[in-house]
Simulated scan of single mutants.
Amino acid sequence: METMPDAAAVAPGLAVLCGRAVRCSAGCRGATVVLRLPGGVNHSAATHPDLAALAALQEETGEGPGAEAARSGLPVWAADLVTDARWPEFRVAALERGLRACTAVPAMAEGVTTTVTLYAFRPWRLAAEALEVVRVLAEETAAGLLRDHARADAEAEAEQLRTAMASRAVIDQACGIVMHMLDCDSDQAFGVLRTLSQHANRKLSAVAARIVRVKGRGSTRELRRLLGEGC
């Protein structure tokens, strides 16, 4: 994609994914989602501000189950953070918030990694069946968000093209009028329009539209003067 979706565009979809992941994961009490885009741009959502802080800490330090799962492309879990000391800063922050266990599930879609991290207040490990469901949910959600963004980009580009074509048609009509009025060729007529645009500090298409609208009436003297200046 030429452009990447911004936070406002993906936030609702990521929030829905958080809720769905929690509902299909028995024993889970909250979740975060991080969508990792090319160029180091990340968008995230969480079911609780405390979990959002944990997601931000992982992005800042590069350590934690979500960060590790994103790097490896494999699920990462800690069944009990009291005894699992792999990520010191994350571990302390999670335990301070009353969290004892977590599982991070990565998914790939359209070359973009989405990581869902699920949390529990007691020692816990996500069942294999639920893990696969969460992975599929994350993959489908990310793919849908990226498709929506690509469609919006394509529609915007098409609208720009339509606008450009309409402007070109008006300019061509105005050139035809000027050519008829001044008995000049197309290059000279376009030069007259361009000079009028510069003098009036208006877009060329707006100047052309006015000439088409009035069919050049009342403009002959000014147009001849501009033509005489070498336009």
Results as ranks from 00 to 15, higher is better:
P123H: 03
T141L: 01
V92R: 15
E139P: 04
T3C: 08
A130V: 06
L35A: 02
A93E: 12
L14Q: 05
T220Y: 04
A164D: 09
A120N: 03
S197W: 10
H180P: 07
A152K: 05
L14T: 10
H149Y: 15
R20K: 08
D50W: 04
A11N: 11
A209S: 04
G176A: 03
R91H: 09
T83D: 12
R151K: 05
P75K: 10
S219M: 04
R168Q: 14
R100G: 06
R213D: 04
A53D: 01
S72Q: 14
K203D: 11
E222Q: 10
R97I: 05
A158T: 11
A101E: 05
E132F: 05
V136D: 10
A21I: 09
E140H: 14
L193W: 06
A143D: 05
R122L: 07
E229V: 01
V133C: 14
V10E: 09
R23W: 01
E68R: 13
E60I: 03
L223R: 02
I211N: 00
G40I: 10
V16T: 08
L95N: 06
E159R: 13
S205L: 02
A189S: 08
L118W: 04
A109K: 00
E139M: 12
A21N: 12
V41W: 05
M1L: 07
G27R: 10
V41L: 12
G13F: 11
L182M: 08
V33G: 09
A46V: 05
M179S: 07
D185F: 04
A209W: 03
L161Y: 08
C231P: 09
P38D: 03
E96V: 13
A208N: 01
V178T: 11
M4Q: 15
C184T: 11
E60R: 08
R97G: 15
I177Q: 03
G176P: 01
A189Q: 03
R168Y: 05
T117D: 06
P38V: 12
P88E: 14
E132N: 12
V192G: 03
E89P: 04
P12R: 14
G19W: 09
A11T: 13
P38I: 02
P88F: 11
A109D: 04
R224I: 02
P65S: 11
A127P: 06
T115R: 03
A9T: 10
A11M: 09
L226R: 06
T103Y: 05
R194I: 12
E68S: 12
P5Y: 08
R122T: 04
T114D: 00
T141M: 13
A164G: 14
V92G: 09
G191H: 10
